[in-house]
C-alpha cells in the first residue's frame, strides 16, 4: 500500500473551493513535487494530509503508524517566547541529546543547538524546522515551500540536503515548491496542481505537458533545461488565462 493515498479530495473554505477531485499517492522512498500557481491549493493539500483541514469530500488514507515530518511554509516565532533550538527539538518528547545532534547534523546545522530560535537567519531557521521534522525519523517528509526567503544558492543547497536525507533514511518526500528548476531535477515525480491535478508524471513529462505550459509558460525554461534542450519556442501560452477544460484530457 502507498504511504499516503488521496482519493477524490475536495477542500472548501466557506464558499471558496480550494481543491476538488484530487487523487494522488506517495510511495515508499520517492520524492514527489507539487507545483502550481499561487492559490492553487498546494498548501491545502498538505494541510489535509496532516489533518489540519477536514476534507469536504473524498478522503486521505494514511498507512497505519506512518510517521510524518512536517516543515511548514513559514513559522513566525514571537520574540516574546524565549526558546533554544535544543528545547524546540525536545518538544516532540522522548528525544535524547544524541538525537538532537544527529538531526541538526542531518539538516546541515550542527552548531545551533544552544541558539535562540528567534535569532536565527531564514536559512538556519528552515534547517532547524527540517531537523525537527527529521528527529522523529519520519517515513514521509512534507515540505511546504521550505525554501521561501532563501536565495537561489541557499535553496539549491537545501534541496540537496533533502536528497541526501532521503538517501540516508529512505523516507519519502512530498514537497511544494515555486522553484521549478531547482526542485524538478531532484524529483522522481511531479504533480501539477491548480485546484485539481492538471498533469503528473516524471519531471520531463510534466515539463513538456501542454497543461503545465499553459500554467507556467515556457518562460520557466530553466526547469526544462536540466532535462533536455528546449528547441520549441513556438508556443507561449503564458499570457493567456488558464483554461480549465483540459483537465480531464490530462488524466
Amino acid at each position: 500500500m502507498s504511504l499516503v493515498q488521496v482519493e477524490g479530495l475536495g477542500v472548501r473554505y466557506g464558499a471558496r473551493t480550494a481543491l476538488s477531485h484530487v487523487s494522488l499517492c506517495v510511495e515508499k522512498g520517492e520524492i514527489v513535487t507539487i507545483v502550481g500557481p499561487n492559490g492553487s491549493g498546494k498548501t491545502s493539500l498538505l494541510r489535509a494530509i496532516i489533518g489540519a483541514v477536514k476534507p469536504f469530500e473524498g478522503r486521505v488514507k494514511i498507512e497505519n503508524g506512518l510517521k510524518i515530518g512536517y516543515v511548514p511554509q513559514k513559522l513566525h516565532i514571537d520574540e516574546t517566547l524565549p526558546i533554544t533550538v535544543a528545547r524546540f527539538l525536545r518538544l516532540t518528547g522522548g528525544v535524547t541529546a544524541t538525537d538532537i545532534d544527529q538531526a541538526l547534523a542531518q539538516a546541515g546545522v550542527p552548531d545551533l543547538a544552544k541558539s535562540q530560535l528567534s535569532q536565527l537567519s531564514g536559512g538556519q531557521f528552515q534547517r532547524v524546522l527540517l531537523a525537527r521534522a527529521l528527529i522523529e525519523k519520519p517515513d514521509l517528509l512534507l515540505l511546504d515551500e521550505a525554501t521561501q526567503g532563501l536565495d537561489q544558492r541557499g535553496s539549491a543547497a537545501f534541496y540537496q540536503q533533502i536528497e541526501t536525507v532521503r538517501q540516508e533514511t529512505g523516507c519519502a518526500v512530498l514537497m511544494i515548491s515555486h522553484e521549478l528548476h531547482v526542485v524538478m531535477s531532484a524529483s522522481d515525480r511531479v504533480i501539477c496542481l491548480n485546484g485539481h491535478v492538471c498533469c503528473e508524471g516524471t519531471p520531463a513529462v510534466v515539463a513538456s505537458a501542454p497543461e503545465y505550459r499553459a500554467l507556467f509558460g515556457t518562460g520557466t525554461g530553466g526547469a526544462l533545461a536540466l532535462y533536455r534542450h528546449e528547441h520549441d519556442h513556438g508556443h507561449d501560452h503564458g499570457d493567456h488565462p488558464h483554461d480549465h477544460n483540459h483537465t480531464e484530457a490530462a488524466e
Partner: peptide, 17 residues
C-alpha cells in the same frame, strides 16, 4: 505543557505531531 508550546509555535506543526 509540551502540547501547548507546540500549538503556540505553529498550529499545523501541532497537527502534524
Amino acid at each position: 505543557w509540551s502540547a501547548l508550546l507546540t500549538t503556540t509555535l505553529n498550529e499545523d506543526l501541532a497537527h502534524a505531531s
